[in-house]
Amino acid sequence: MNDCHEMVQDSKGRLILLTNETKNNILIYDTAGKLLDFWGHDFPGGHGLTLVNENGTEFLFITDTVKHQVYKTTMDGKILMTINAPLETGVYKKAEEFVPTETIVDTNGDIFIADGYGAQYITHYDKDGKLLNYFGGRGDGDDHFDNAHGIVIDRRQKKPSLLITDRTRNCFKRFSLDGKLQEIIKLPGACVCRPVIKDQHLYAAVLRSIDMSHPASGFTTILDKHNKVVSNIGGTEPVYQAGVLQPMNQAEKIFIHPHDVCVDKDDNLYVTQWASGKVYPYKFTRV
């Protein structure tokens, strides 16, 4: 195992962990931490891991920041589809400019890819990998990004929307599914990774606190359905003054570089860490 990047739980209750170690990119555990299976030798830049259920059959979407590609695989590792750099957009001149960090898949099979380490565009595809739309990109405007690290479809409101990380700017940005900016959720002091939604709460690993120049300073944050921070594991207590969240910071040295949160069926939390001395995920049991 090298860097632990992201983790999901499948319908069997198994925990699927993605690493960037090509001896075994995927490690599969039970909730007690027993290794059940492993596979994968083809993802040197394994970064984003998304679980999709299509009519009762589960698949994985894996982003690779080294190979500049996104893959759809079976649960045992067979590659079914590869999405390459979207050169047809005209905003990418070469494949190396596309460095995808995350995907999310809609109920109709549409795929959204966040290019968090590249040109910062969000690309939208149909279920067969045909490009439908793109938006965002690097820039200073509110509808642009600087480290669009993660993406999720938020169904807690009547109309589904995209929540997208803008990590360097310490916020999540809400967009319509067709790419129109709707809201900015400011999280001062929190360089957040991907948003993870379970029931009415949003969870996120905070890679670093204050800003990206402060290594080994992360924590894990939890927001309610009103976008209010209700808890920071390893971080300072969230404080609001006149309705405005005050800067947050690491308070306890629990994490080094937390990179993702997985919430299991019993609401236990698993936090994966990057560049943290090859530590395995930490489990936090619901009290």
Rank of each mutant, 00 (worst) to 15 (best):
A275H: 15
V99A: 00
H124T: 06
T82E: 15
K198V: 13
G277V: 03
N108A: 09
D267K: 11
N24V: 00
G136N: 03
C191F: 01
M7D: 10
T272D: 08
K180C: 00
I185K: 04
L177C: 09
T73H: 04
K12M: 08
R194K: 15
S209I: 02
K127A: 15
K127H: 11
D30W: 03
L35Q: 14
H144C: 14
G56M: 10
K23H: 10
V261K: 05
T103N: 03
K283C: 13
D128L: 09
N25C: 11
G137T: 09
V229N: 05
D140Q: 13
D106Q: 08
A85E: 05
G139K: 04
L202A: 04
S217M: 10
M7V: 12
L177S: 09
K283A: 14
Y280C: 11
K265M: 08
Y280W: 08
Q273D: 15
G13C: 06
I62W: 02
V8C: 02
T285P: 00
D154G: 12
I26Y: 04
A190F: 01
I62F: 04
N268K: 03
L49P: 05
H124F: 10
F255Q: 06
G46T: 10
Q182R: 13
I222S: 01
L18Y: 03
G243C: 05
F284T: 05
H5Y: 15
D199I: 00
G48A: 09
L177T: 09
K265R: 14
N2T: 12
D264G: 12
L162T: 06
E183L: 12
K180F: 01
T123R: 05
D64K: 12
D128V: 00
V261P: 03
T74M: 07
Q182L: 15
L27Q: 14
I254E: 01
D166G: 07
D178Y: 07
F38N: 15
A275I: 02
I113M: 04
L49V: 12
T168K: 12
I122D: 03
G116E: 10
V99Q: 10
G46P: 07
I197R: 08
T236R: 05
V196D: 01
G45R: 10
V152L: 07
G33M: 12
D178H: 12
F175H: 07
L80F: 04
D37T: 03
D140W: 01
F59C: 00
I233Q: 05
G218A: 08
V66W: 09
N147S: 11
Y71V: 07
A251N: 11
F255M: 08
N25P: 05
D140N: 14
L15S: 08
I256F: 10
E21Y: 14
T101F: 00
V229D: 04
T221K: 01
H41D: 13
Y121I: 06
G150M: 09
K186N: 13
G118N: 09
T123A: 10
Q246T: 12
M1N: 13
E183F: 02
T220Q: 11
D143K: 11
N25T: 05
I26L: 14
M81P: 02
L187V: 08
P281R: 07
V70S: 07
L36I: 12
G234W: 11
E237Y: 11
C262D: 07
T89C: 05
E88T: 13
K67M: 14
N108H: 05
Y92F: 15
D126M: 02
V261Y: 09
N84G: 10
G179R: 05
V66D: 12
A242P: 00
S176E: 11
